[in-house]
Every structure is written in C-alpha cells, then in structure tokens.
Design a protein around this nucleic acid. Structure first.
Lengths: 189, 189
DNA sequence: TTCATTTTTTATCATTTGTAAAATTTTCTC
DNA sequence: GAGAAAATTTTACAAATGATAAAAAATGAA
C-alpha cells in the first residue's frame, strides 16, 4: 500500500491549486532503512514527515524499559508534536519498523507559508485539529476500555498491524505486559 | 481567580488589534449555576466556551457508571472537540462544579472568521495545537505513570483542584476506584 | 446547632495483573 | 536446511487493585 502526497494533503483539507503547489514545493521524498531512528526525544526536531509507505513506532525510554505509545502507517503524519508546536524536545523516539518511504517537510518552510497564505494556514489548522481528534480518541480508548477490549478494537480497526508489528510492542502500546497479552490472546481463541 | 477574555485570547496567540476586535465582537459573557450541564454527549454542540471563573468536569456515561476524564478551570477552553472539528456528537457531558462565568463563542461565527482573516486562522491553528499538546500530555501521563504518581503530579500541578473537586471524581479521573485513592492518600501521609 | 445526607476511609476477601523462569515457536543467518 | 537468536507462550507464585460492606468524617439544610 502506498499513499501519494496529493492523497495525504487533500485528505487533511483540500487546497486551491496554487496553494497546494506552493506547499508541495517544500516537500521532499526520501527512503529510510528499517531500524532507523527518524525522530529523537532528546532533540528539537526541525521536520515533519508523512508516510508514503512503511510503518513506524513511537516510544519513550524510561529508566528500566521503553514504552510504545503510537504506531504510524501509510498516510500518517510522523511528528514530534512538542517540537512542532512549542519548539521543545518531545517525548518520543520514532523508529522505522520497515524500510520506508517518507515525505519530508521542514517546519520552518511551513511556518513561512502559514504567515503568507490563508488557505495553508487553515490547512495547518485542520491538520492540528485532526491530529487532536486522533489523540483524544486514543486517550478515551485508554481511559474507558480494558486492555482486552482495546486489543480487540486494534484487531478490528487495524487488522494488518498485527502482521507487521511484534506483540511485545503491541502489549506495551496496550499498557500491559507481553505475558498478559498472551493470556488475552489465549482466551479469545 | 478570574481570567479576562483578553488574557485568554492573547495567551493562545497574540492578534493584531483589528483582528482581536473582530473576534471579541462574537464573544458573549454569561453566568451559569453550579450543577448545570453545559455540553452534552448526545448533541452536536454549536458553541465553545472559555472559563472566566469556575470549574467544570467532563465525564462520559458507561452502562454502569460514569468516568470523569477532564477538569477545566479559569482560562481553559470548554469544548466538545468532536463537535468543533468534525461536526459530530462528542464523548462528554460537561458539568459545572461551581457557579461559573463563561465566555461563549459560536462555532459558526468563528468558522467565518477563519475564512476571512489569516491572523484569526493562525490563532485557530495555535488554539488547536495547544489543545493537542495538552491532550498528548494527558495521554502520556496515563500511559507512563502509575495512579500514585499521577495523583502526586495532580497535587503539584494543580494544588487548588483537590479543594474544589470531590475525591470520587478525582479517583475516576486517575482511573482507579475511590477506595484505591483513599489507600494512596493514606500511604502518602 | 442538630440531624440527615453525602463523602471519605478502613477492613476483608476475591480477582486481576505482574514477575521470573522455563518451554515452545518463529525468524534469521550462514 | 541446520543452528542460533529472537519472540512468544506457559507456568507458578507474588503483589496490586477491585468489590463490598461498614464505620467515620464532613457537609448542608432547617
């Protein structure tokens, strides 16, 4: 599965052709190997990315282990929100779980367009709003549903994920141990 | 403690005077009594609010109980994000825990300004971005820290809250039972 | 203030989840 | 394809959390 940059941009908010060309002029395409760390928690990141093809995970290191808290796949924005919004170090390292093709957009270029073009400003607004809705959905899911429910939800909303991501990461994402996830999987069958 | 509308608007993103006046023209002030339900989960809400004075809680009803997942106080935006962004019913009822004074802004008026004024479009972008960062922070807190840690964090970041909100709501917010919260409180002392 | 109601704490027991370690299965490399 | 490494499952036991009930404390109305 592959997502074109036009699909991704239009999906956020349809832009007039002139604005869209201006935005696309600042976007580059690049390939990265599996295992690469695309974004790092200890840096203020200067670019945001969109996934053309591939899968990534965001995780944060704690003293004794690491916690996975997001998976990104085709069409998703890969971004250190804290860097993007507040120019501060984020929480997450983001690692490529497959060889991936990404679209890259430098934050600085985008900021300039926000000040010049009202359509792009509103595109940026829509982008933040949609990411907000997704984050809210994740928070609600975590607050309201048990790990078992959330695992089933994941299977339903994202059936491909489990083939592409190892279960240890998924257990961490669900907020349980790998042993607990094994128990859940044994029960379901 | 009271927050003026100027403080609230400027805090999101400083606007040129002309734009700010245009925005303020659409904002009304109103008082609501304790116990009022300001926003409802079963409606597409048409307004957003900012808290001048008071405290509110967002909760969602499940078959057997209700789960509190947010507290808003002076300066905070009270909003059904799903209504605002996607024109769909949200997750939450929002209840006033004190007699409160709020600033009201109709979504429709705001949308019109987004299309007309690039500064307001960027203000709206900043608003969404900041809400996003707060939501992300809540998600991270929930994923990374134990209930005990989150309770201590709450005490530190928000020492007034515990005087203004009953512990049952706080326990629910922390994702534990009231009995567990009592145990935590007993241990800490 | 006093009484009734609501909120919070304490105690007990049952259930769930975690930890550690071993067994099994899958994946990767040569 | 064989062997090594990594990932997953299983088991046994320990620790944490939940459910329920009852006592204590705080709040509010008359």
């Amino acid at each position: 599965m592959v997502m074109t940059i036009d699909q991704i941009l239009d999906n956020i908010y349809p832009l007039p052709e002139v604005s869209k060309q201006a935005l696309k002029k600042d976007i580059l395409e690049a390939s990265f190997p599996k295992g690469d760390i695309l974004l790092r928690a200890d840096r203020v990141e200067k670019s945001i990315y969109f996934v053309k093809q591939g899968i990534v995970r965001a995780y944060s290191k704690t003293p004794d282990n690491e916690i996975t808290f997001w998976f990104g796949r085709e069409g998703d924005a890969v971004i250190s929100m804290k860097s993007y919004v507040a120019n501060q170090k984020g929480y997450e390292d983001i690692e490529l779980l497959e060889n991936s093709e990404l679209y890259e957009l430098k934050t600085e270029d985008l900021q300039k367009l926000f000040d010049e073009d009202i359509h792009i400003a509103n595109w940026g607004r829509k982008f933040a709003e949609q990411e907000l809705l997704k984050t809210e959905e994740r928070l609600i899911s975590r607050q309201f549903r048990t790990a078992t429910e959330r695992y089933k939800e994941l299977l339903k909303n994202n059936p491909g994920l489990i083939q592409r991501v190892q279960l240890g990461y998924i257990a961490s994402y669900l907020g349980i141990t790998q042993v607990s996830l094994s128990r859940i999987r044994a029960e379901i069958k």
